[in-house]
Simulated scan of single mutants.
Amino acid sequence: MDALTRFTPEQVAAAKRYSEAIPPTDIDPRIERLVADLIGRVADKWTMLVLELLTDAGTLRFTRIAERIEGISQKMLTQTLRQMERDGLIERKIYPVVPPKVEYNLTPLGLTLGGAFCGLWVWAAENLGEVERARAAFDKKA
């Protein structure tokens, strides 16, 4: 089953709308502060990878997330998941069993953020060759 099927068509459409949107030219200062804050938190490597993983896989336990994100430490994954939960991007469900079972999944808000960052993937795909050439030219000079 596709992980996105648990979202309503409206939520999926909102994520698509964000991925295709053109930002306004006159931006409220509160929005500027929020964007700066979110970029500092969300655009880090681990948050982006968790966001992508949960978009593709749906609900996962902590250990499954750790197994699928190469190089992340338990401490960093815990911090990343807590911050994402605080920001309303994921929800955590705790089952009262021994040992404790905890599952994580995207919220509709997290899905729309993933849609907003989708533009980065499109840009990367369209500009990969140019970036690689620029890096090679730079490295050759150094």
Rank of each mutant, 00 (worst) to 15 (best):
V97L: 04
Y95C: 01
L128K: 11
N127Q: 03
K101S: 15
G119I: 06
L109Y: 12
G129W: 01
P99M: 01
A136G: 13
N105W: 09
L113W: 13
E132C: 10
A116K: 06
F138N: 06
L109M: 12
V131R: 03
E126K: 08
T112N: 14
A116S: 14
E103H: 13
G110S: 02
A116D: 08
V98A: 10
W121R: 10
Y104T: 02
V122F: 12
P108C: 02
V98G: 08
L120D: 07
C118H: 15
F138M: 14
A137R: 08
E130D: 07
L128E: 14
L111N: 05
Y95D: 07
R133C: 06
P99W: 00
L120I: 15
P99N: 00
K101Q: 14
R135Q: 10
T112H: 10
C118T: 11
P99V: 02
A134F: 08
P108K: 00
V98T: 13
G114C: 05
R133T: 06
P108N: 04
L109A: 11
G114Q: 08
A125M: 09
D139M: 14
L113G: 09
G119A: 13
L106V: 00
T112I: 12
V131W: 01
P99Y: 00
L109V: 08
E130N: 09
R135H: 14
K140T: 13
K141G: 12
E130Y: 04
A124E: 07
Y104A: 01
A125W: 10
T107A: 00
A142H: 12
V102C: 05
L106C: 02
E132V: 11
V102N: 05
K140Y: 09
L128S: 10
L120N: 10
A142W: 12
V131M: 01
Y104C: 00
L111S: 09
V122P: 00
E126A: 05
T112G: 09
Y95R: 02
E132Q: 15
V97Q: 05
G119W: 06
E132F: 12
P108S: 02
